[in-house]
Amino acid sequence: MESTLLNAVLVGLVGVFCMLDSRLLGRLNFEQPLIGATLVGIVLGDVPTGLAVGAAVELVSMGLVSVGAAVPPDMVLGGIVAAAFACLTDASAETAMTIAIPVAVLGQLLGIVFRSIIVVLGHVSDGEIEKGNFKAAYRMHIVWGTVLYSLMYFLPIFVAVFVGTDVVQAVVDMIPDWFTAGLNTASQILTAYGLALLLSMMLNKGMTVFLILGFALASYLGLSVTAVSIFAVLLALILSSIKYGQGGAQMAVAGGADADYDPLEDDDDEF
């Protein structure tokens, strides 16, 4: 029982570290399921499991980026909890990930509550400025912001790991084989979903050809993602110098207002 408590605290602290990455370190990407799950694997002494769960959850969450006000299901939280379950019970990476998704949705709800609480802090801060308590005003940001965001991760992870491990183990013991095999297929479809989400943010009209090109290089020629990326950088540099390069810029300057737009629009039609 004591070790469960210790494990729950350790995994909770991993969660705090990952959350504070985007709060205090400008999102260096420690706040990603792959990193969170690997760190859980390290603190719980089962790195291979951490890596496997991290890779699986990372693929689903690729497209779930917090942009603006929309809060996506919190897959970092989900990934950390899933990795802990996989390390502490017999659950496979796929099973652990399926358990993680409800936790991720709960994390999303909790995130909404906490981000609303911070709205109130903003108004407290306004009041402190009026009173001339400048230090108190910015402490709302650097002290209370840090505390609230840390709790936002620590609490659900701690509770899930502390209370949930035995329950999860009991559930895992009851799962039939066809279900486990099905979850494996589901994880592949979830990966497709993650990539599709990413595309829904990136794909502009006329750019689809680059997606297909990347796919074809990897599927027909068997290139790795690294190789595809290197070709992509080279191709992008060549094309951008054709599209925006010196020739185009000079024409635009020489041709006056109307000519400014023509070269660009012609290019758009081609792709």
Binding site: L59, M62, T185, Q188, I189, T191, A192, L195, L198, L199, M202, L203, N204, M207, T208, F210, L211, I212, L213, G214, F215, A216, L217, A218, S219, L223, S224, V225, A227, V228, S229, F231, A232, V233, L235, A236, L237, L239, S240, K243, Y244, A249
Partner: peptide
């Protein structure tokens, strides 16, 4: 003035999309 913003977005767009294309072919495996 120099289209620099558009240019950066264009380069990022191509590289990102080609990488995702490669990932569809290598990481799903259904």
């Amino acid at each position: 003035s120099g289209n620099m913003m558009d240019r950066i977005m264009y380069v990022c767009g191509i590289v990102g999309l080609m990488a995702v294309g490669g990932m569809i072919a290598t990481l799903i495996g259904a």
